[in-house]
Design a protein around this nucleic acid. Structure first.
Length: 821
RNA sequence: GCCGACGUGGUGGAAUUGGUAGACACGCCAGACUUAGGAUCUGGUACCUCACGGUGUCCGGGUUCGAGUCCCGGCGUUGGCACCA
């Protein structure tokens, strides 16, 4: 042992006091009570220095209770928050419950209970589970989205959007889930099926409230570049917003309005041999010729009643000719105008030009209806007259236009601009950027949500409920279940919805839809600091002090909707002058998912693990640490029952070391070196969520600490207790107290490492011959290439491979020597 | 179809970002202490080989003194978008 300090001979080791067994249940309940009594986890929001807002995605309080996935997510966020606190920051780690919404309502229906009865029960269970998990939560700022004191402000928020012109009502074909009996947002429809229950989704036409998310599409996209977020999440948002550059091109139609199409390939216009409208396109009825009227009407009827699946999944092309003729603005040739449901009214202008030579869908359409196919793009050395057996999609920037008048021979990228410019001069095109992002439909024909605060008056029209009359309280009704009438359950209660108009006083009617559950969660982070205030949604000064959120941690299943809606709401509030920032989450990290035996945990697979049982058996500290040890936090991991024992042993050894340690003598220098290396490693890993490797490093240290029969010095364990504290807070507090720490270990700072102790006197250098490692040599830290080579040649197992004069020697100081022969 | 991530022992996973592959842990094997062990402690554990040694990070090429890491081409798993013009 290279230690300068001799270890004590056995006879001089003081007999350690009897070590009490580590009893997690006792330790954890003691400290949970103490934290609650002393308000340890409730920071001083007005005066605390260096505010750090550590946010975790609040849970929906399901009937099953907290599951291991929640706990994994929360623990990771909690460790990060506790670490920041130990760095001296004032950390605010709030919690609440997303207790409104369809999930809760459906669960209540399934149990035959009322959601208002079920919710408090579920929330209570969650509270106790979260508490016994040892999270540093500030319960004094809890929010509950289904409580009038919260949804009053959700309704207020709706009114702010309304005032800003960001909320509007329109009749829209909506996705109707026949099973949940509700309208679904586009994003809740997966391949034509309901995201929640997997039923086939149908189309229905209803009057709906929308938020103008599309208005913010450019900014929502541009700002992504400046966000410190997980890259997968940023990518998902970009895909969802879906920017594409192209042009609007106008086609003249005889005796009717012009038809404008959106295209990303204006360069292919010489190959456009028809124009096609979406069935819902407003120009359809105007354009159709009398001869074609009957067949068009029949087609419209067919597509209208068609369910979403046959449209989205069965992609056989259908369509009808309208009888109308448009003029291709590039060629001047007349081309037919068709109607087909492969064109979507929601995207672009609801009309496209058919370029069968260079678009797969158009090619199919041309084949089916025998429309002409013209090649207008070709590889440079290709034959412009070669027939097309399939759509040719330009793959190379070197592809050129052909059969395109004076543009023939021009490379595609250049032609995209040139053709638009040329058409623009003639007044038939202009460059545009189009976004995939649609407006957000927030109406729900359900019961368990905030009533939308609007009153319909026969004389005044839609009138917002005055802010001083909020909240519009959701009445307790027994017949809250939806039926397939398509109207909200509240619409069955005229005693509730009949109210005088706030403007003129005549008897009017409340809006009976409630708002989307995603609206509840799109602003909860603004509410937390001001949760105890009943006079404002959020206090302006407090908000300025605590927001934007410093670090937000959550699941990537919310990468698109929740995060995008939150960003949208924040932007609107910013533009309304109500807050000073336009992005709510400075830093966002997506955690991975916990799987078990290679599969996602689910009740149907029977592989769910119950955190309560695990805490009973092993303790919350062991469970927390084990969950973090499974794998990279941002990638998740595979849960196995057997693994937790290793972590428990690790904590047992810390417990034993704390009880056995002595204050006499001095710490062992080799142990100290390892300790300081560990302090550095853990301190570097935690901020980047490298929890698994941080734990491994601490385990390594404990292995070194407990090697050999020697007395462990207090100064060798005290910093370890601090390092492990974010992971295993209860045992750390108990150990901290035993070691004489006053107050909480979380207010005791973070140990510093001594750089001098990280520099070893000797280094081990790998010696390779022709790139193959043949051995190692131990040399002084400043050894030169010659020193190392000489040392290496003393080792016969290395020297025997060096039979001739080396051709070349590569030396990496402190690392390796490679001898090339 | 478009965009992205990943692929390492029996298992979960490490690897200072091009420098001793398999840290840490589970499991397994052996030993110690025990009336006992699903407790604790010690040692071993990628594969082939008695050994010398050889092989090895999905497969095939390449760059390099040196590749799990970089490049090209496949295969597989997985996430987002998708009749989006």
């Amino acid at each position: 042992m290279p230690s300068g300090i001799p270890t004590l001979p056995m006879s001089e080791i003081p007999v350690p006091p009897e070590t009490p067994a580590y009893d997690p249940a006792a330790v954890e309940s003691t400290w949970q009570h103490r934290w609650a009594e002393q308000g340890t986890n409730s920071p001083e929001l007005w005066h605390g220095t260096d505010p750090y807002y550590q946010l975790m995605m609040f849970p929906y309080p399901s009937g099953e209770g907290l599951h291991i996935g929640n706990l994994f997510a929360f623990t990771g966020a909690d460790i990060h928050g506790r670490f920041q606190r130990m760095q001296g920051r004032t950390v605010f780690e709030p919690i609440g419950f997303d207790s409104f919404g369809i999930q809760t309502e459906n669960y209540a229906i399934k149990l035959g209970k009322h959601p208002a009865e079920l919710t408090p029960r579920n929330v209570d269970r969650f509270r106790s589970q979260l508490t016994r998990s040892g999270l540093m939560l500030d319960w004094s700022k809890e929010v509950l989205t289904s409580d009038p004191s919260y949804y009053k402000w959700t309704q207020w928020l709706f009114l702010q959007l309304y005032k800003q012109g960001m909320a509007y009502k329109k009749a829209a074909a909506v996705n109707w889930c026949p099973n949940d009996k509700t309208v679904l947002a586009n994003e809740q429809v997966i391949d034509g099926h309901c995201e929640r229950c997997d039923a086939l989704v149908e189309q229905r036409l209803l009057e709906q409230w929308f938020f103008r998310t599309s208005h913010y599409a450019p900014r929502l996209l541009e700002n992504i570049a400046g966000l410190d977020w997980s890259e997968i999440t940023r990518q998902a948002q970009r895909n969802w917003i879906g920017r594409s550059e192209g042009a609007h091109v106008t086609f003249r139609v005889a005796n009717a309005h012009d038809v404008t199409v959106f295209t990303t390939r204006p360069d292919t216009i010489f190959g456009a041999t028809w124009v096609v409208l979406a069935p819902e396109h407003p120009l359809v009825s105007e354009i159709v010729t009398p001869v074609q009227r009957a067949v068009v009407d029949e087609y419209l009827e067919r597509t209208k009643t068609q369910d979403v699946v046959s449209r989205k999944v069965n992609r056989e092309k259908t369509g009808v000719f309208t009888g109308a003729v448009a003029i291709n603005p590039a060629t001047g040739h007349p081309i037919p105008v068709w109607i087909a449901d492969y064109v979507l009214m929601e995207y672009g202008t609801g009309a496209v030009m058919g370029v069968p030579g260079h678009d797969e869908r158009d090619f199919e359409f041309a084949e089916k209806f025998a429309l002409p196919i013209i090649r207008v793009v070709s590889p440079v050395d290709g034959d412009p007259s070669a027939t097309l057996a399939a759509a040719y999609i330009a793959k190379s920037d070197a592809d050129v236009l052909v059969n395109s008048a004076h543009f023939s021979g021009m490379p595609v990228p250049q032609a995209k601009k040139a053709v638009v410019a040329w058409l623009e001069e003639r007044g038939s095109a202009k460059p545009v950027v189009n976004y995939r992002l649609n407006d957000w439909c927030i109406s729900r024909q359900r019961y368990w949500g905030p009533p939308i605060p609007i009153i319909y008056c026969d004389t005044c029209g839609p009138v917002p409920v005055p802010e001083d009359q909020l909240p519009v309280v959701l009445p307790l009704i027994e017949d809250f279940r939806p039926d397939d009438s398509g109207i909200s359950p509240l619409a069955r209660h005229d005693e509730w919805y009949r109210v005088p108009c706030p403007q003129c006083g005549i008897m009017s009617r409340r809006e009976t839809d409630v708002s989307d559950n995603f609206l509840d969660s799109a602003w909860y982070f603004l509410r937390y600091p001001s949760a105890d205030r009943s006079d404002v949604a959020f206090d302006r000064a407090l908000t300025a002090r605590w927001l934007p959120v410093t670090t937000y941690i959550g699941g990537n299943e919310h990468a698109v909707l929740h995060l995008l809606y939150s960003r949208f709401i924040t932007m609107v509030l910013h533009d309304a002058g109500l807050i000073d920032f336009e992005e709510p989450f400075t830093r966002f990290r997506a955690h991975g998912m916990i799987i078990r035996e290679g599969a996602k945990m689910s009740k149907s697979k029977g592989n769910v693990v119950n955190p309560d049982e695990l805490i009973d058996r092993w303790g919350a500290d062991s469970l927390r640490t084990y969950l973090m040890f499974l794998g990279k936090y941002e990638e998740g991991g595979d849960y196995r029952d057997s693994g937790i024992t290793g972590v428990r042993r690790f904590l047992d050894r810390i417990w034993a070391s704390v009880h056995e340690c002595v204050t006499t003598g001095t710490p062992d220098i080799a142990v100290l070196r390892k300790l300081h290396a560990t302090i550095r490693k853990v301190g570097e890993d935690i901020p980047q969520l490298g929890y698994n490797t941080a734990i491994a490093a601490m385990m390594e240290y404990v292995n070194v600490l407990r090697t050999n029969e020697r007395a462990i010095h207090r100064d060798e364990v005290r910093p370890l207790v601090q390092l492990v504290a974010p992971f295993a807070p209860h045992i750390a507090e108990a150990c901290w107290e035993i070691l004489g720490g006053s107050d909480s270990v979380f207010d005791g700072g973070w140990p510093a490492y001594d750089p001098a102790l990280l520099i070893a006197d000797t280094v081990t250098i790998a010696v390779q011959v022709n790139g193959k490692t043949r051995g190692t040599v131990v040399v002084g830290k400043d050894a030169t290439q010659a020193d190392v080579f000489a040392e290496a040649m003393k080792d016969v197992n290395i020297a025997k491979f060096v039979t001739t004069e080396p051709k070349k020697i590569i030396f990496v100081a402190g690392r390796l020597l490679n001898i090339v022969v």
